[in-house]
Design a protein around this nucleic acid. Structure first.
Lengths: 209, 209
DNA sequence: CATTCTTTCTAACAACTGTTTGGTAGAGTA
DNA sequence: TACTCTACCAAACAGTTGTTAGAAAGAATG
């Protein structure tokens, strides 16, 4: 590593660090006020700089959303792929995927909220085509997992599969809307209880005589 | 009824009818493109008139959202109150409330989507204070219902009550995001399966020997 | 027919939007 | 010290936004 190269790397990582900071701020503002209701001046305000200064770091407001969402989705799918490759049974895979989802909510809360609220509108732009890809992949994964669960005898066969898919998908991700890191319940505890509800239901089990 | 009064009523209802038409259009556009991303010109376009013409019927863009949301909430609470006053057991009440919710989604889909996506942001304005009231009332109703369910022995006692509340609330209402009237499943069928999932879980029940 | 009333159009407005340009303070380097 | 580079500011830009005022088309009414 020549000193020249170390410098270049140093400034590059410093720059990337600042980008990450600004993106974190932007994600927070986007999530709380809504993407299109948020002005770049509001994002800049929250970051302590002026509106135009954001354009030193980013091409456009859209590119901020782009980077926020793709970073989150990359991390999510990396986690998912690891789980899916572990060769677990359907029930254990399902549990692990749900747990990973809540870990993602914990780690990327504003990005998840942004994804939930705006992905449908953003996806109409070709730039955000990867949102549709992710959506399809998501559906494929869950439908496959549910079918496997039924085949393995661990999931009920009398329910409409696409409906169960939407049920689980929505159930898990909307939690980003109210979840607060450092709150009463940890992401892990929430995941556990959610799993219990989804798998066993909230009904009291009649005592087996 | 004097002819004079009949005329006045006639024009009044005609006017109200036109308002309702325009509100239905506005709700659809708000729901599909997002409230703040929607321009009044887009709403007017969808209604076949020009942007400024909307202001003959409505004070502002905000007042359209206001009327859309309050109409929906009024209908919803009327239904809920009827159910709650019926004096049913906790389990039956829960089932009826869920069913009513899906009927509301069926009848007010765009309004529900609007409510889901924007109520959090809109509620910061004093004009939309009733959204917070509704939210509180909703929480109160569900927490009470869940507690009663546990007391009556029909619901599990080992789950975190506020978590179960959010679980049910979110689970039910997000369906507005993908539900399409006239689709493969009716609102009633979806309600039935949702209830089955929430109450009994999606896990296969081991055959009782 | 003339008149009134309802609904829409035309044409603008001020404010705000995302974005660009050129300048500048300050740290790092030689 | 002189130079360079990074990160920001200051000020503007063109387009869009919600909204308004006055005119006009057309139906209803007398």
């Amino acid at each position: 590593m020549s000193p020249r190269r170390r410098d270049a790397e140093g400034t590059a990582t410093a720059r990337a660090g600042r980008r990450a900071e600004l993106l974190a701020v932007a994600a927070e503002v986007f999530a709380s006020r809504g993407y299109s209701a948020t002005t770049v001046r509001e994002v800049a305000d929250a970051a302590g700089i002026l509106g135009g200064s954001l354009y030193y770091h980013f091409d456009s407001k859209e590119s901020m959303a782009d980077e926020i969402l793709s970073t989150f989705l990359d991390d999510m799918w990396t986690s998912y792929d690891r789980v899916l490759a572990a060769g677990l049974g359907a029930r254990e895979t399902l549990a692990a995927v749900v747990a990973e989802s809540f870990r993602c909510i914990d780690a990327h809360r504003p990005a998840v909220v942004l994804y939930q609220n705006e992905s449908k509108h953003l996806a109409t732009s070709p730039r955000f085509a990867y949102l549709l890809d992710s959506h399809r992949r998501f559906e494929e994964m869950w439908l496959g997992l549910l079918e496997r669960g039924v085949r393995e005898g661990v999931l009920r066969a009398d329910l409409d599969r696409p409906l169960v898919y939407r049920f689980i998908r929505d159930t898990v991700w909307v939690a980003a809307g109210w979840y607060r890191p450092g709150g009463r319940l940890t992401a892990g505890e929430i995941a556990k209880q959610y799993l219990a509800m989804v798998l066993e239901g909230i009904q009291a089990h009649p005592p087996t005589p």
